[in-house]
Amino acid sequence: MARLSARDLTLQYEQRRVIEGLRTEIPEGKVTMIVGANGCGKSTLLRGLSRLLRPAAGAVTLDGKDIHSRPAKELARTLGLLPQQPTAPDGITVRDLVGRGRYPHQAFFRNWSHGDSSPHDLAVRNALDATATTELADRIVDELSGGQRQRVWIAMALAQETEVLLLDEPTTYLDLAHQVEVLDLVTDLNRRRGTTVAIVLHDLNLAARYADHVIAMKDGAVVAEGTGIDVITEELVRTVFGLESRVVPDPVSGTPLIVPIGRHHYPAPQATETTKPALEIAS
């Protein structure tokens, strides 16, 4: 069952065609990871799915209806998007920024109540809670660390309270600990609220671990889709990234773990005299 699907989707920037005749589905209630090499069109696909880019041909449908045929605000109550590196205005507080995620739920001219019990305040508080940013609520966004800032942006997307959430490389420029933190957060959201999530992600290993469903892309087309174990193979890594690798079970999660093979440090040194000390330390 899919809520969001692309039918014969063609996307282009001016004259440059990036995606042609693409068909895919974002399965409901799952975490989908879209992976592929740089410039394969994965971010473009996400832009298409989130109505930032109008299709040159084909359509993106949400619950069977073309997303471009629906009023923008109504659509934004169901389909949320966190773009890559959004910009925070100077001097904006965390609470103000997260509150702006409520825009699609607000009437155009009517003011809403500011009481603690209003649905808007509740949504903002829940979003701050879920992302552990309540403590930061009155801080200025520019003054936060990269990891905190990304949590705040996710909080803004949560305040939007959509059933489908698309994220474009939410872990870019974060260190490994914060990458894991962000993906855990998104998984919480999926498990607790049943939010359908689609993420464009660079890191194949993290994608393999956190994905219920993987869409692998190359040259603007979908090469493979399915569960991580079915999709991520040495063969696929070779096709999609042009990279030789070993795919082994992740010792932590059992999901596929890609061990890349470069020109150096290969073949791996045998367990000879030189490596023995290292092994001893490890044991």
């Binding site: 832009r47 989130s50 109505r51 930032l52 923008a72 605000k73 109504e74 659509l75 934004a76 109550r77 949320g80 998007l81 966190l82 773009p83 959004p86 910009t87 925070a88 205005p89 904006i92 920024l97 702006r100 995620g101 825009y103 699609p104 997307a157 939007q160």
Partner: peptide, 16 residues
């Protein structure tokens, strides 16, 4: 106020 967050974010929040 939403355009201040960037065009993409604003569009995602339902701003035309």
């Amino acid at each position: 106020r939403l355009l201040e967050l960037g065009d993409d974010t604003a569009a995602g929040l339902g701003v035309r």
